Amino acid sequence: MGELLGVAVLGAGHMGADHIRRLDRVVSGARVAAVADPDEARAREAVAGVEGVVVHAEAEAALDAPGVEAVLIASPGPAHEEALLAAFARGLPVLCEKPMAPESAGALRVVEAEARLGRRLAQVGFMRRYDAEYRRLKAVLDDGGLGRPLMLHCVHRNVSSPPGFTSAMLIDSSVSHEIDAARWLLGQELTAVTVLRPRPSAGAPQGLWDPQFALFETDGGVLVDVEVFVNCGFGYQVRCEAVCESGSVRVGDDRGPLVTAGGSAATPVPQDYLARFAEAYDREVQAWVDATRRGRITGPTAWDGYAASAVAEAGVCALETGARVTVDLAPRPALYG
């Protein structure tokens, strides 16, 4: 590879534009070589001031652009499978934002395609694994000093949902992060899910079941509950508490600067995920670039992406039917053993 890893970024929306900025200004050892987005005007706006980058409307044109040695996929979820398979066909390492594929069948096709290659090329963008607080939580659990984990209590709140956000997306878009975090923190698979619905908030758009309460079971006997509330109105909050046999450990409490004035004390609450997890995204992309330059792929695997899609799919079924739904995973290929 060259002195700087040439990266093609697919998608120039909110997430893609942030990754373009990150690769150009924050991450070392990489450069943006190409960008693809059906809205070429949006893509050109995202690369304004970035030297040596070419813009395409089609993803495959960006993959074939001169100097492209790796791919960062930040396009909408339905486009991910095709982009991943195109990258595999070219032998290009990929960092793919979640979901790896919206449906488990598509995610499994990606897993099977990579397994046929006999080597890993894909890393899935579950950035919480790179968050400093979540890494400390993981270290405490792995140490074992608190005994075995019994329960995880999780909170996932957004200021407001974007236009077109559906009740199912509370599970397969928002809670998918908790699904992966729980699998990673516990080292266990999620085997069943139940979703309960309190009355919708007055702040939720008409017809949106918000908030929701998801309860997951693991193959190790741990219960994981998630409150997801995407129109809470006051800020972006993500919390996780592990309750163990002899103690508990919690992350995500708001600990920004405490401002005291006018007879009150207040701490600011982040307003979106890019603010809350900015350092995690930086650390994730830097780790991917460093590993790729060494000819390695680390971080969440395509199997992790498939498992998250399968669990989320079961969660959406549980939401729609009101029933407890079991998760049926395909056999894990040896590549991910």
Rank of each mutant, 00 (worst) to 15 (best):
H156L: 08
L150E: 15
I171K: 01
L152M: 04
D172F: 07
L146W: 01
G144Y: 05
V159N: 02
V159R: 08
D172I: 01
M151Y: 14
H177N: 13
G147T: 05
M169P: 09
D142G: 05
A168M: 01
R157Q: 13
D172Y: 12
M151Q: 12
H177G: 09
N158G: 00
H153C: 03
S174N: 14
H177M: 07
P163V: 07
S176N: 05
D142I: 00
H177V: 07
I171H: 09
F165P: 07
V155A: 12
I171D: 03
M169D: 13
F165W: 15
D143R: 14
S174L: 11
P149R: 07
H156E: 13
P149M: 03
L150C: 10
A168D: 15
L152I: 04
G164Q: 06
G164D: 05
V175N: 14
A168Y: 06
H153D: 08
C154K: 05
S173N: 11
H156T: 01
T166L: 11
S174A: 08
G164S: 03
P163R: 13
H153I: 03
L146R: 02
L170Q: 14
P163I: 03
S173W: 12
G144I: 01
I171C: 04
F165H: 13
P162K: 09
H153T: 01
V175M: 15
H177A: 07
P162D: 14
D143C: 08
F165T: 03
R148N: 04
A168R: 15
T166W: 10
D142Q: 14
T166A: 06
G147S: 06
P163M: 08
R157T: 07
P163C: 05
S161E: 02
R157P: 00
V155P: 01
D172P: 00
G145D: 12
L150F: 02
M151V: 06
S160K: 10
H177C: 07
C154F: 05
V155E: 14
M151L: 13
A168C: 03
D142M: 02
S173M: 08
S176T: 12
C154Q: 14
R148P: 02
H156F: 11
L170I: 13
L150G: 13
S161W: 00
C154P: 00
S174E: 08
D142E: 15
H177F: 09
L152Y: 04
G147N: 05
S174H: 07
M169S: 12
S160A: 15
S173K: 11
M169K: 12
L152V: 03
G164F: 07
G147Q: 04
